[in-house]
């Protein structure tokens, strides 16, 4: 098995997810977080390390895609670290913008992914 430290940011993020961990990058020098994973931060720092995401955040924007086969929501979640990610809230049809949410790693046919639950529903 390849050590995660030797992988590029995209593969490393996915390898952490495969191991059940939701990890994001932070620059040691500036303390900045960056998501989605890449090789530099918005200010240009490159000394990135993987840290566990707090897993808590807020719904920044949300839509429900309607299709004949059913509907599913797609949300942008602002993590408490200050970065934004696309995700979904699989347990609910939709949620108000500003709702507090908590992450979990969900296993799907296509592999693991980070999804969110409303905080009051979070176990």
């Amino acid at each position: 098995m390849t050590a995660i430290e030797t992988l590029g940011p995209q593969a490393a993020y996915q390898a952490h997810l495969e191991a059940g961990r939701f990890m994001i990058q932070r620059a040691k020098s500036t303390g900045e977080y960056v998501f989605w994973p890449r090789v530099l931060t918005p200010s240009g720092a490159t000394d990135l390390e993987w840290v566990p995401a707090k897993g808590t955040g807020t719904v920044y924007a949300i839509t429900v895609n309607r299709a004949r086969g059913g509907s599913w929501n797609v949300a942008l979640i602002e993590l408490d670290e200050g970065v934004r990610m696309m995700s979904t809230l699989p347990a609910v049809e939709t949620a108000p913008i500003g709702a507090r949410v908590k992450a979990r790693v969900e296993t799907t046919e296509d592999g693991p992914r980070v999804v969110f639950d409303l905080m009051e529903d979070a176990k």
Partner: peptide
């Protein structure tokens, strides 16, 4: 976009709907 694919967005409309939801809120 690999970081979006697991959530099955239907772009472009999903993106514009997200922006609309934010503008409304």
């Amino acid at each position: 976009q690999w970081h979006e694919t697991p959530y099955k967005p239907r772009h472009p409309i999903t993106a514009y709907a997200l922006a609309t939801s934010r503008h409304m809120a």
